[in-house]
Amino acid sequence: MARKVTTGARIGWTIAAWVVALLIFFPILYALITSFKTEQEAIAGFSLIPSGTFENYITVEEQRDYFTPFMNSVILSVGSTILALIVALPAAWAMAFAPTKRTKDILMWMLSTKMMPSVAVLLPIFIIFRNLGLLDTRIGLTVMLMLINLPIVVWMLYTYFREIPGEILEAARMDGAGIWQEIVYVLAPMGVPGIASTLLLNVILAWNEAFWTIQLTTTNAAPLTAFIASFSSPQGLFWAKLSAASTMAIAPILILGWFSQKQLVRGLTFGAVK
């Protein structure tokens, strides 16, 4: 709208929006600040100015071996997403470019598997994992997270692929491209942004998955979710250190998340809102 907004109104709205935004962001900000406080400062009452020590970060790593769960989180989230992509890419391709009458039903059915409450299958999965010796293993959990996110991956890729106009593929065929050439020269380059978005969102979702990661791991394969959850009664590790661990756990994904606002809306609403 080319309407002129008075500067006064604009400043008013700006202040209101910033107050709300800072209130919402405050818990994260406060954890960040606390992570640079000493333990005495952390419990000494409200203060936004830390003494600026890095000791908490060092202690968390030295005492609690932060690096292992961090690497587990990276391996599980990236591994499960790549695995899901490998399985989902051909399926999404087929549904987008060679749809049949049943394509829609299959998509809806896939989505419906996402609606099954995890807790309902907790015991069977636990027993299967125990019997197969998969409990507390990275491979077991990677497969698990892959299965959980597979419907979203298929669905997201499908909505991206469907936006590639059919006429372009027909043009490629008229131009003499075979199916592999069509994929290599036309589909893959045009699909890359969609695939990257899918990858990004699913790494985020897998990183933050906090049911199965807690249920199926103890120490070896425990990612950050399980690692942090083990501090629910803080023995030996106090708030400044907990804040340091928390900051490290959420920082990478928070930054990734900022870049994925658009994909987030699309991926989590299954294309219903763009």
Binding site: W13, T14, W18, F25, N208, A210, I250
Partner: peptide, 28 residues
């Protein structure tokens, strides 16, 4: 609304979504 720094406000507001549940719960 036409506010200054809309991009940053957006980022601040959506941030909690990316905080893993155990961390969110423990901070609170």
């Amino acid at each position: 609304q036409p506010i200054f720094g809309q991009g940053i406000v957006r980022i601040l507001v959506i941030s909690p979504f990316f905080v893993m549940p155990p961390v969110a719960a423990l901070i609170w």
